[in-house]
Write a protein that binds this DNA or RNA. Structure first.
Lengths: 191, 191
DNA sequence: ACTACTTGCTACATAGCTGTTGCAAGTAGC
DNA sequence: GCTACTTGCAACAGCTATGTAGCAAGTAGT
């Protein structure tokens, strides 16, 4: 992808811009390149030098974020660890990424390499849920697609709110998994 | 609010524009007034005649959507019906509104009358959850703020996805409430 | 030290969106 | 049928964001 290797300082600049863009665009998705440049502490022209168009910038952000996420999932040892352990670990890891790269991960998928990466993550995720169901952790009659959707929604909710910065990741991960599996209802209540 | 009553055809036009704006902006939040006008089947100048600025249009959309939501909640007889019945009913009603006015309801609250309306809805909602907790439906140790957040996240998830158009609202409401209270885990699994 | 790269700055070109106005044609309501 | 309202169309002004280019100063890497 990178046609020619960048010099060390340029590489740093790129990273700075990507992080600034995430911060700015998370607050205001239609912020201008000017605002992004200002947040990164560089001139607007420098941003354009590194990213020809706004579109290119966002695409790079997306690719970067999905790579981070893929790594986070990978480190949870999805395939080898006991499924519940893997779920907790992956949740904690994914939360860190989602908090830092929320905008990039929610931006519409515009047909790029990030799509394939995300597809891989989703596939891993689905395999994990299938294992959990076979292990009897998930109800046998529950739709796994729905499980994934609920899981994503909870991750999203936790990652969005400001408490993601204050509370530590493990606590939040526990909250997500706990709610995913048990809900918030009382076990002895008859529905 | 409406300074002078509009003629019947103008009133219709306003409604058409609001609905078109919701449709268009839900897909692309930064769509131009031109696109909105086109979707409504009117000239761009007509949109500007009815809504001085883009901001005014969005504000009106928000107010309209929150009014709808408030009515939906009201019809669920939050205060009088048994809490679980009210929860189901409110969920079903709220879903209809959220599906039709998803953009308006998610757009950032920019200090308008819609804020007060929404605050009322949130308050009703919180009172309902408090009742549910007292009735033993919700776990005694669960944080009600968290309950509300999970509830909103589930509503959002269901309303977003396309199946909201296909599946009937009652089924979806049942799915939301069921997952909210029980989660997706097996009751006999030890966590 | 030398070279190639990188950056900030200024300036410019362009395009698109926003909001306004005037006018002519049509329509709702009485 | 009369009047006032409403709409489409065309034209215009202003603004902002985008993207490009050149030049001078500074810096990484050798």
């Amino acid at each position: 992808m990178t046609v020619r290797p960048l010099r060390a300082d340029a590489e740093r600049t790129v990273r700075t811009i990507l992080e600034a863009a995430e911060r700015v665009l998370a607050r205001n998705p239609s912020a201008s390149m000017e605002e992004i440049a200002a947040a990164a502490g560089v001139a607007r022209t420098t941003v354009h030098r590194r990213f020809a168009t706004r579109e290119a910038l966002v695409t790079t952000m997306r690719t970067w974020a999905s790579t981070q996420l893929a790594r986070a999932v990978d480190e949870a040892r999805f395939e080898t660890a006991p499924p519940l352990v893997a779920l907790y670990q992956a949740t904690a890891n994914a939360l860190e990424v989602k908090v830092s790269w929320g905008f990039a991960m929610n931006s519409a998928p515009a047909a790029s390499e990030s799509d394939e990466i995300m597809a891989g993550v989703v596939a891993s995720c689905d395999r994990l849920f299938a294992r959990l169901q076979r292990a009897g952790v998930l109800r046998a009659d529950v739709d796994l697609i729905w499980v994934r959707r609920v899981y994503y929604a909870l991750l999203h909710e936790v990652a969005q709110s400001g408490d993601a910065d204050e509370t530590d990741t493990d606590t939040l991960a526990t909250q997500v998994v706990d709610t995913l599996l048990r809900g918030v209802g009382s076990p002895n209540a008859q529905l």
